[in-house]
Design a protein around this nucleic acid. Structure first.
Length: 568
RNA sequence: CGGAGUGUAGCGCAGUCUGGUAGCGCACCUGGUUUGGGACCAGGGGGUCGAAGGUUCGAGUCCUUUCACUCCGACCA
């Protein structure tokens, strides 16, 4: 491709809403163009090319693993989503609209329903299973707050795959195969990543893993262990049960006057007791799918923090929201002095696992200015769940070494779904005994457009993009310093033709601009290698440039083809 | 949804307080010079000033309504 014919509107100036390197360089490098803000982007020729290359890697590995590509209708009849129950359950991110006949439709944020519908109409027998179908198509999620360019757009390209099996064991075999396949994809793209345990979120199901591209700008906090392979999203991370070396406060059960002691810190000071022996009681309003809501108390040790996603899952709610003191008072709770042991009838309480069998605990008396000391939960039957947010320094449940936090970009997510969609949607097959069974499903996603952003987040410098081999828009760029110099021009054309005939994808910068502008554009675009034909041509020398590190190597005109063949 | 801002040329912005010919930089077009780190000179094109209504002889500027977008927070595969 000739640069002079290529539509790449590069700019010196940074758009004022761009903060992340990937956002800045993808816009400045003319890969993408913002469409009136709001998380919508056009892909310009170079962006489209990179997107296609990434997509090709994904497709290649999936096809090798036996998956089959399909393309589902983007506009989805709402009836399918009503069947699965997600039409109501899925929040406002789901874009709903009506056609001229006033029928409801949605733009798919994910396509479990559509794919199950496809399969239930075509697969009837265990002989047709297993089956793994995927598509690489646009998704739409009406994000509350799109930002960071391609990282969190509203419209985005995603690979979503779905597998269908006769047994749970076979689904788990496929799940493992997909984990391995995803690893191959991320490795080929040159990404540093980590596979972590994850919360299943709105998709539902159990046994889910996320593929996190490691980057400081990542939106997810992940907990990793340096002693072993353990890694998990903070939303799902577990730890070895915490014990305290602090002395337990010996006390018989009694009520204590504790004026103005409404925080864990104040309470710890008041009794001179480690927060480990205090009960932290967090009140939330739980919102349920059917539109109902209730006040729920979450009780955990004062030394721990509540992990809201875990809490939400523990009560099977759609969402948890904060609650005001007034609302608490209405149901008979006293803010600052709540405790899980003394409660109005109507209030639901969930205990953290760490409180099971705990003794010598201090908790609120649910009465202003009073706490209860000497509480024991030995033998107490209650609703116990894991509710705590793992902290840095907590110990790994697998190997006992300290855990630490790092940041990641969620680029892939695989789920063991089970029969969660096949049952309500009636996707059944006949087994060997002629008996109808719901198919066992897995679902697997990769954020393809997000991967472009992730690649740049991990591979850039202060001058621009540094594409990895399999994601680069071109293999090599030839820069002719001055096109009016006939010798330079002639050599450029000759190299261009010769390298192209060898099957390399080459960009020839034949624009009328000066050298400075061309090299700046080269650095911004981030093609892995360049050959610069410039002043030294008088001495029969050209430059071979490696974008990563910007190393320059002077090479004779006679050997440049060999150097390129060897390095590119 | 809470808080704070911004809407003026493709992009980045000034002009709004104090109403009176629509501006600047980048980008773009023409001609010339220049050619190893985003050149220079001269000339030029491009605007329903977010939208609607109002006040006024006159509104980018004042008033009312409304829409959109951005940032912080909450939320989020």
């Amino acid at each position: 491709m000739r640069f002079s014919r290529l539509l790449v509107p590069t700019t010196k100036e940074t758009p004022n809403d761009a903060t992340l390197a990937s956002h800045i360089y993808l816009i400045r490098g003319g890969f993408i163009q913002s469409v009136g803000g709001s998380g919508l982007y056009n892909f310009l020729p170079l962006g489209k090319k990179v997107l296609d290359r990434v997509r090709e890697v994904v497709k290649d590995e999936l096809d090798k693993a036996g998956c089959q590509e399909v393309s589902l209708s983007f506009v989805t009849p709402a009836s399918l989503w009503q069947e699965s129950g997600r039409f109501e359950k899925y929040g406002k991110e789901l874009l709903r609209f009506k056609d001229r006949k006033n029928n409801d439709f949605i733009l798919g944020p994910t396509h479990e329903e559509m794919m199950v519908n496809l399969v239930r109409q075509t697969v009837k027998s265990y002989k047709q299973l297993p089956l793994n179908l995927y598509q690489i198509n646009l998704k739409f999620r009406d994000e509350i707050r799109p930002r960071f360019g391609l990282m969190r757009g509203r419209e985005f390209l995603m690979k979503d795959g779905y597998s269908f099996h006769a047994t749970t064991e076979d689904m788990q075999r496929e799940f493992t195969l997909m984990e391995e396949t995803y690893k191959k994809i991320f490795r080929r793209l040159g990404l540093e990543f980590r596979v972590v345990e994850a919360d299943s979120g709105a998709i539902g199901g159990s046994g889910s893993k996320e593929f996190m591209v490691l980057a400081d700008s990542g939106e997810d906090t992940i907990v990793v262990c340096d002693g072993c392979d353990y890694g998990a999203n903070i939303e799902a991370a577990v730890r070895k049960e915490k014990v305290s070396e602090a002395e337990a406060p010996e006390a018989v059960f009694s009520k204590f006057h504790t004026p103005d002691t409404t925080t864990i810190e104040a309470l710890s000071d008041f009794f001179k007791v480690d927060p480990y022996y205090l009960v932290k009681t967090v009140a939330k309003r739980a919102l349920y799918a059917d539109g109902k809501s209730e006040v729920v108390l979450f009780a955990l040790r004062g030394s721990d923090e509540l992990q809201e996603v875990k809490a939400c899952n523990a009560v099977d709610a759609n969402d948890l929201v904060d609650i005001s003191e007034e609302e608490l008072a209405e149901v008979g709770l006293v803010a600052g002095y709540m405790g899980p042991t003394v409660l109005p009838e109507s209030v639901r309480v969930v205990f953290d696992n760490n409180l099971k069998e705990a003794s010598s605990m201090i908790c609120g008396a649910n009465e202003k200015d009073y706490h209860l000391v000497g509480n024991s939960f030995k033998g107490v039957e209650a609703d116990y769940h894991d509710l705590v947010a793992v902290q840095e320094g907590d110990l790994c449940a697998c190997c006992g070494k300290p855990l630490r936090y790092t940041k990641g970009i969620e680029a892939g997510h695989i789920f063991q779904l089970g029969t969660q969609y096949s049952e309500p949607l009636g996707a059944t097959f006949l087994d060997e005994n002629g008996k109808a069974q719901p198919m066992v499903m897995g679902t697997y996603g990769i954020g393809v457009s997000r991967l472009l952003a992730a690649i740049i987040e991990q591979n850039h410098d202060d001058k621009g993009c540094i594409w990895t081999k399999e994601s680069a828009p071109f293999d090599l760029e030839i820069i002719i310093s001055n096109i009016k110099d006939e010798e330079q021009m002639a050599l450029g054309e000759k190299l261009y033709a010769s390298l192209k005939s060898q099957g390399l994808d080459v960009l020839l910068d034949d624009r009328k601009d000066r050298f400075g502008a061309k090299i700046k554009d080269y650095e911004l675009l981030g093609v892995p290698y360049a050959v610069v034909i410039g002043k030294k041509l008088k001495d029969r020398l050209v430059e071979f440039v490696t974008r990563d590190g910007l190393e320059k190597e002077e090479t004779s005109v006679d050997t440049i083809l060999d150097v390129v063949r060897q390095k590119v």
